[in-house]
């Protein structure tokens, strides 16, 4: 992973006597897709608004590529591309005019680059139509296009999969991962679709009531050596438990013909073999890995996930 592109240092936001964001500290390095999770009202959007300078920071600071967003706004925002909430555009102008509008605001964007970005988000055929005729998915693409026009080092997307169909979500996911891998862009995504975040992100932060609860990596297949809870679905659970007891293992009956044991991959193979040898049919074996959603609900005390 590269050097940190965005650094939140003890960021606090108070409005009146209410503390909305409380002492938030995190780093996102280049080349990482970073997920930002939390229930409704946890402060996700407020944090993003502070990161792009739409809201003032009560105390603490946010550095983007080493520049403070509050003190060196023009320098730091230059490296940021963002969609904050819905991708709002000027509906009475065409998609192309919208892009030209934003391209003019940053020096050095050629019309060639505009065409390139249009092709990248797959809007060539409709780019000269008025935005009011676009579907939500097309507006989302146009939103992405305006965010990446100036090749930002940090891409901030607030709820990017809202209103996209499954194919669109998949496309966006692949695209974001590509941006991170190949161009070294740091991608900061907030979403309420937990399973989506699991597929998209390298790391996720979970916040609740404005406080950072946890930052964790999304594990891939790197946990093969670890001890897991393994679930066996068998024909006769009682005799299966006896077989386990005979070889000195304790199984827990989970009901519906499922037994759980603790152990690694090797153990799973051995247990399976002994079941089969004892004439017990094994219908299924799986590792009981808690999904992000379950972990999330556990941590936030099962409050509604927005």
């Amino acid at each position: 992973m590269g050097k940190p592109i965005v650094q939140l240092q003890g960021v606090t936001k108070r409005i009146g006597s209410r503390t909305i964001i409380d002492n938030l500290t995190l780093d996102v390095p280049s080349g990482e897709v970073f997920g930002f999770l939390g229930p409704n009202g946890a402060g996700k959007t407020t944090t993003i608004r502070m990161m792009v300078g739409l809201m003032s920071i009560t105390s603490g600071d946010i550095l983007i590529d080493g520049h403070s967003i509050s003190k060196q706004f023009e320098k730091s925002i230059r490296h940021v591309g963002a969609i904050v909430e819905n991708p709002e555009m000027y509906k009475y102008m065409s998609g192309y005019q919208n892009l030209i509008h934003f391209a003019r605001m940053i020096p050095g964007i050629t019309s060639h680059r505009v065409k390139e970005v249009v092709a990248l988000v797959g809007l060539e055929s409709r780019i000269h139509d008025k935005v009011k005729t676009y579907s939500l998915g097309m507006r989302q693409r146009l939103g992405v296009a305006q965010a990446i026009l100036h090749k930002p080092k940090l891409l901030i997307l607030d709820e990017p999969t809202n209103g996209l169909d499954p194919a669109g979500i998949r496309e966006l996911r692949d695209y974001l991962r590509n941006m991170a891998r190949q161009e070294g862009v740091a991608v900061f995504v907030s979403s309420h679709l937990l399973s989506e975040m699991e597929l998209m992100c390298d790391r996720v932060a979970i916040i609740q009531n404005g406080k950072l609860i946890d930052v964790r990596s999304i594990q891939g297949s790197d946990n093969s050596a670890k001890s897991l809870r393994i679930l066996f679905e068998v024909e006769w659970p009682e005799s299966a438990l006896e077989v386990l007891a005979a070889s000195g293992l304790t199984g827990i009956s989970e009901g519906a013909g499922v037994i759980a044991i603790e152990g690694d991959k090797e153990l799973a193979a051995q247990v399976n073999e002994s079941f089969v040898r004892s004439g017990i049919k094994v219908y299924g074996i799986r590792a009981d890995i808690k999904s992000l959603e379950e972990q999330f609900l556990e941590m936030t005390g099962g409050e509604g996930i927005g």
Binding site: V52, G53, K75, R78, E88, M89, F102, I106
Partner: peptide, 14 residues
């Protein structure tokens, strides 16, 4: 009212 102010204010212009 249309929300485009957000897109306008996140450009390198104070």
């Amino acid at each position: 009212s249309t929300g485009t102010i957000k897109l306008l204010l996140i450009r390198p212009w104070n």
